[in-house]
């Protein structure tokens, strides 16, 4: 029996380490393939337009990812502006008004939405918005992404507010303060790090999603700041260029992966984790 136990333990270790290995391999390959491209094209990557499809006929094209970087920020910004108020309100509702039917419904909805395949958010916004507007756009992409981000923010917010002991909230109420004052002023300092951490995690999740944007955000070789224009994003660019037979496209796909993971997503997750640490009292 002890020998069997040891064998079992060894197996657990091997499986655990290989899971970690896969993660490191993914990150490592992005680093190894992406960083050289970023160094090769340098700052131009962040300022130049994406070379047009016929770049081979135009001599030496400018090589850059600026439209995809700006597009990502626009789409994420729009999604953030929509999902923060809705997600936060839903989270408060779920945590603090648990006796109401709407709160129950909101919780069900949030936990279901988290599980829904993200591509369905894309297709539904395509039917709802892109077809009536006759054009994909940063706005449509942002709305599709907000469907992914709202449940994240709601769940994180609810968790954070639930963590505050009832007796602390009662301490505020006993001072003759309204419930809303207790929630938004008295315990603000206690919940803010947790809520911000949730928002950052939602942003990281949103930034990495390609599926909801495929039908909704469109494509653009050039930088635009008009939310009704089509935009390219890093995630969609990775998808589009990743399989290409052209060396330059594949290079750009790796560079975009590097920027997305090491410049946008990992820092967001890191800040979020630090926030959560600070939240413990």
């Amino acid at each position: 029996m002890p020998r069997l136990y040891k064998l079992w333990l060894a197996l657990i270790y091997i499986i655990g380490l290989s899971a970690l290995g896969v993660l490191l391999w993914v990150l490592g390959s992005i680093l190894v393939n992406g960083l050289p491209v970023v160094l090769k094209y340098g700052i131009g990557l962040f300022t130049n337009n994406i070379p047009p499809p016929m770049f081979l006929f135009f001599g030496k094209p400018e090589v850059g990812l600026a439209p995809a970087i700006v597009g990502t920020l626009m789409v994420i910004g729009i999604a953030f502006a929509i999902s923060l108020p809705i997600g936060f309100t839903a989270g408060i509702l779920i945590a603090e008004f648990k006796h109401s039917k709407i709160a129950e419904l909101a919780e069900e909805l949030a936990s279901t939405l988290v599980e829904v395949p993200t591509i369905t958010a894309g297709i539904s916004i395509y039917w709802l918005l892109v077809i009536p507007m006759h054009n994909p756009s940063a706005l449509a992409g942002g709305i599709a992404l907000s469907l992914i981000m709202i449940p994240y923010i709601a769940i994180y917010t609810a968790e954070t507010y639930r963590k505050v002991p009832m007796v602390v909230k009662e301490g505020g109420l006993a001072l003759g303060l309204k419930y809303s004052t207790v929630l938004f002023k008295v315990i603000r300092g206690l919940v803010l790090p947790g809520v911000i951490s949730g928002v950052l995690m939602a942003l990281a999740k949103g930034a990495g999603e390609a599926a909801p944007l495929l039908f909704t955000a469109g494509w653009n070789d050039k930088v635009t700041l008009n939310p009704l224009d089509q935009v390219s994003t890093l995630s969609v660019l990775i998808y589009k260029f990743g399989f290409s037979s052209q060396e330059l496209w594949r290079e750009l796909s790796w560079a975009a992966s590097f920027i997305l993971v090491f410049v946008i997503i990992l820092p967001l997750i890191a800040i979020s984790k630090i926030m959560v640490k600070k939240h413990e009292f």
Partner: peptide
């Protein structure tokens, strides 16, 4: 006013 069974100051303040 009320004082509770277990001390419940606002811990972050």
């Amino acid at each position: 006013g009320m004082v509770f069974q277990r001390p419940n100051p606002f811990p972050h303040m």
